[in-house]
Design a protein around this nucleic acid. Structure first.
Lengths: 195, 195
DNA sequence: CCTTGTCCCGACCGATCGTTCGGTTACTCT
DNA sequence: AGAGTAACCGAACGATCGGTCGGGACAAGG
């Protein structure tokens, strides 16, 4: 049992392949046969590393959820004026979305057909709720406009941020995560209109 | 062949049922058996009305695309300052999304596994491009900020608008499409920050 | 009455689904 | 050299997939 090992799969490296295929074809649209072709091993070999298709999904969405909830525990998300904490969380969400792009992409597309998917949807709702509370606090402190309902605004802002997974591709020397985060923060807080 | 007919399916009424199930379970996650249960007729009877599963998808996304492209032909989308045409298109997109909610929802979720899905993706890209041109024109006329790239801003605005299908439910006397459209226009052009 | 066509059904098709199983290869450790 | 085991494979499982087929119920039109 040496530490150095290669050109063989671990659950983690197999997960990388699976998540990529899941995102290309959709979870339901991906068969174990598709996964085996993409991984270059036989269908039955996959079961040597993981218990089945659903474990791959669970591992992937867990990783994404852990990263997102981690944001809320960071210092800048817990101290200061609510509007500043909100801006920090928005910026960090963009960064996490891009850093963990395939995993978050998968998370944002689950429909709720299996137990794992329903659990993921529930945790997502919990995260949304935590951010909505931030926005609500910022409104109470008078730092954001009061003529748009908090719940509605939260959903629209989440919609903007989450849409990143639909088009961002990390091709060399396009825009970096910093550029995207800046643009999102600017649009969310100041809008399109000329400053 | 009288005109008055009822309590029997037409391709259109069957489509309504199918689109609802597609949105609940995902297109790939929906079997013809699921559809037959939801429609209350046998699986084989479905083939009396439509040629198969994919025709249902094609009819649904076509309807959504026709409504969206229709916006661009309306008078207010073709005359006036670009920024005003853009605001009109944004508002009308929200209205169409809500009026044709299940059909647009399905359109926004296609992945590209079949020919029909790839065609839908292509037409969506074409629509996005048309709106991006509007935003570009508004920037050239000096009415929107120049420090956010047009292509990036378009995608983010689309992300915000399209996210409506993920949470809007037409339950009686919640917020109407007018409220949502107002909020979207306000956020897109002026942002969250207190006016 | 009988024909015609609409609407629907149960039974069934070959293909593919996620998963299991028995066995083989190849490397590590003693 | 021999034992143990991690990584892998082909073949096959029952279930379900999208779709086909021949025929029955029923109303309209002659």
């Amino acid at each position: 049992m040496t530490t150095a090992r290669r050109d063989t799969y671990t659950p983690e490296t197999l997960l990388g392949v699976a998540v990529r295929v899941f995102n290309e074809r959709g979870y339901d649209g991906t068969s174990m046969e598709h996964l085996s072709k993409a991984a270059g091993i036989s269908k039955s070999s996959i079961y040597h590393h993981v218990t089945g298709k659903e474990e791959l999904l669970r591992r992937a969405v867990s990783r994404a959820l852990d990263e997102l909830f981690g944001i809320l525990d960071e210092e800048h998300a817990r101290a200061g004026r609510a509007v500043e904490r909100l801006e920090y969380v928005v910026r960090r969400m963009v960064e996490v979305l891009i850093a963990e792009l395939p995993y978050v992409t998968l998370l944002l597309r689950v429909r709720g057909n299996t137990g794992t998917e329903r659990w993921a949807l529930e945790r997502r709702r919990e995260f949304d709720h935590r951010v909505a509370e931030l926005l609500s606090a910022a409104a109470a402190e008078g730092d954001v406009r009061g003529d748009v309902e908090v719940r509605l605004a939260t959903r629209l802002v989440f919609g903007m941020i989450n849409s990143i997974v639909e088009w961002y591709r990390p091709d060399g020397r396009g825009m970096g995560e910093r550029d995207v985060a800046d643009a999102v923060v600017r649009l969310v807080f100041s809008g399109l209109t000329r400053a």
